[in-house]
Amino acid sequence: MNSQIESGLELVMRLTQRPNLENINPILIPKGPYPNEFVEIVGAPGTGKTTVLMDFIVRTLLPLNLLGKNCGTVLIDTDHKFDMLRLITMLECELKKLNVAKSCIHSAIMKCLKNLTVLNCYDNEQLQMSFYNLEQILIENSDIGLIAVDCIPAYYWQYRNLSDNHISVYGYTKQMLQCLEQCVRNNNIVVAYTRNAEADVKEIKLGETIHRILLKKEAGSFNAFVNDKLVPYTLGKTISWL
């Protein structure tokens, strides 16, 4: 007989109902993402990983009646490609598409932004400590359903030089993901992260399911690969899935 003893805190974490993110993007993630799962966006520089992540964030921030998930999101930004003003533009585009009245757009955007928490990190220590801080943030706010990290291996070279560790990018990325997994496990949230890597990079295996989205730029056009399925897309003010 397997018995597990968990602390009161862990019980609360496990039982807390968080917003559901299923079908947030059925083209890229056909099934899910279910709570405690990971979404990996990997691609070479310039393929639009941050834009894809921002697209997810837009979906989570929008209210339920506007095809969103009305879900709180925590964004951990390490390489500072995330541009708040661009997020606003993306939200505006979505709201216009859904025929929201012009006068209401600004207040609708402010309402969406209430769901967002931003953590700007500037070095490896800050990033890891921010992971540990997530526990507190999640306890205080049961509306949060998504943790977005852009991008995970940003401080690889700094880490390597700091303690003269002979670790590869793969090893470092795995280490950081395991630390993150440890900090948010059983909290019923989804983690989406970007990873800057070439196409044939080794996959990382964690305890939980990872939905892997591979972005590639070939001969001027962009393609996303999901479970061997090809999804072309274009990058502009926002991202359009073709």
Binding site: I88, L113, V118, L119, M129, S130
Partner: peptide, 22 residues
């Protein structure tokens, strides 16, 4: 532990005040 995490983690900003700051 709580004190150290608070001190060394990144500053938490909510979307609205971050937007206003920008």
């Amino acid at each position: 532990r709580k004190h150290l995490i608070n001190k060394y983690a990144a500053v938490t900003r909510d979307g609205v005040s971050y937007y206003n700051e920008i």
